[in-house]
C-alpha cells in the first residue's frame, strides 16, 4: 500500500465519539481508523453527517461540550493527542497542525480586526517571542501568499467587510502560520461561490505542495479529491468503509456505498442524479447493528444486519469494510 510505506505522521485508531443530546446519546464515530503518512495527502469523503468534521475536530480536540471521546487513540508523532496534557496539545496546535473551517463566514471573530486575530495566531506559532515588526512581516507575507489583493486594507478590516472568498483566504493564511506538518481542510470550499471554489482549491494544492505539508482534505467535490490527494478514505455513518489510492477508489470503487457515491456524484456529462445516494444516514441514537450501511445497501444479506464487517484487504492496495469481499 502506498501510504503504509511512508512513516506515519498521524494515526487514528478505533476512534469512538458520542454526542449527548436531549433525547439520548448519538453514537457518531464508530471506531474510525485513519493514517496519514509524512507529506501524504489524504482525502476524506462521505455524505454530510457521516462524521468527517467530528473526526477532524477530534484531532485538535476542539469538539463541542456535549461530545465525549469514548475510545480510541490519535497518535501524532507517537503522542496520543487525546490523552496529551493541555501544554503538549497546545504545542501541536500552535506549530504543527492547523485546520481550515467549513464556513469562512463563521470562522472569524466578528468583533476583531483581521490584524488582531492573525497577529495572535502568529505570536503563538513562534518558538520564541517575536518583535512587533516580525509579526507584521510574517502576516503580510502570509496574506500575500494566499493571494489577497490589498493586504493593508484586509488587515484593517473586520470580517464582515470581506467577501467569503477573502475570508477563506484569511483562514488559510492563519492555518499556514501554524501548520508546519499537517493541514486539516474541512470542506474548505463548500460555502463559497462556484467560481471561487476552484481558485481556493488550487491555492491550497499549491501552498501545501510548496511546503510539503500533509493534508487531510474533506470535500464533496470528488473530482478535486481525486486530483489533489494520494489516498482517500470513504466514510459512512461514523465508519471508514473503504480506503485506497485515490485514483483506484474513484475508478474502481468496491464498497456498495462508494459505488453509489461515485455514481450519483454530479458530473459535467449531465448524468446527474440530484438526490445523491438514495436513503438517509441512519439515526445515531439507535444506529443499525452490524454494518451501518445495510439499511441502504442493495446487496445486504443476513450477516450484514448482525455483524460489523472487518476491514478486508483486497487487490490494488485497497481495503474495504464489506462482507461481500470476505474470504474471496
Amino acid at each position: 500500500m502506498a501510504g503504509e510505506k511512508k512513516e506515519a505522521l498521524l494515526e487514528i485508531r478505533d476512534l469512538k465519539v458520542n454526542y449527548k443530546v436531549y433525547k439520548g446519546t448519538l453514537k457518531v464515530l464508530n471506531g474510525v481508523e485513519l493514517r496519514v503518512g509524512k507529506g501524504e495527502r489524504i482525502g476524506l469523503v462521505g455524505e454530510s453527517g457521516s462524521g468527517k468534521t467530528t473526526t477532524l475536530k477530534s484531532i485538535l480536540r476542539i469538539l463541542p461540550y456535549n461530545a465525549s471521546i469514548e475510545d480510541g487513540r490519535i497518535l501524532y508523532k507517537g503522542i496520543d493527542l487525546l490523552r496529551a496534557d493541555e501544554r503538549v496539545l497546545n504545542e501541536v496546535r500552535r506549530r504543527e497542525i492547523a485546520m481550515i473551517f467549513q464556513d469562512p463566514m463563521a470562522a472569524l471573530n466578528p468583533v476583531f480586526k483581521v490584524r488582531d486575530q492573525l497577529y495572535d495566531i502568529i505570536k503563538e506559532s513562534a518558538r520564541g517571542k517575536l518583535a512587533k515588526e516580525e509579526i507584521e512581516e510574517i502576516a503580510y507575507r502570509l496574506l500575500k501568499e494566499v493571494r489577497l489583493p490589498d493586504v493593508e486594507r484586509v488587515m484593517d478590516s473586520y470580517p464582515f467587510q470581506l467577501s467569503g472568498g477573502m475570508r477563506q483566504r484569511v483562514v488559510i493564511a492563519m492555518a499556514l502560520a501554524s501548520a508546519r506538518e499537517l493541514l486539516l481542510a474541512d470542506e474548505p470550499t463548500t460555502n463559497l461561490d462556484v467560481t471561487i471554489q476552484d481558485q481556493i482549491l488550487r491555492l491550497l494544492a499549491d501552498l501545501t505542495m510548496k511546503r510539503n505539508l500533509s493534508v487531510i482534505l474533506v470535500s464533496h467535490a470528488l473530482g478535486m479529491v481525486r486530483k489533489m490527494t494520494d489516498r482517500t478514505y470513504v466514510m459512512y455513518a461514523g465508519d471508514i468503509v473503504e480506503e485506497g489510492d485515490s485514483g483506484e477508489i474513484f475508478e474502481n470503487p468496491l464498497h456498495p456505498y462508494t459505488q453509489l457515491l461515485v455514481e450519483t456524484a454530479p458530473k459535467l456529462t449531465g448524468n446527474w442524479n440530484p438526490r445523491g445516494v438514495p436513503g438517509r444516514i441512519p439515526d445515531y441514537l439507535n444506529p443499525p447493528p452490524g454494518c451501518r450501511f445495510h439499511t441502504r445497501c442493495p446487496f445486504a444479506e443476513q450477516i450484514c444486519r448482525e455483524k460489523k464487517p472487518p476491514m478486508i484487504a483486497v487487490e490494488g492496495g485497497k481495503r474495504v469494510r464489506c462482507w461481500l469481499y470476505y474470504k474471496r
Binding site: 475536530k57 485538535l60 496539545l89 467549513q102 472569524l108 471573530n109 492563519m174
Partner: peptide, 10 residues
C-alpha cells in the same frame, strides 16, 4: 467556529 479556530491555533 471563531472561538474553536483560535483554540485550534493554541
Amino acid at each position: 467556529d471563531y472561538i474553536l479556530l483560535m483554540e485550534s491555533h493554541g
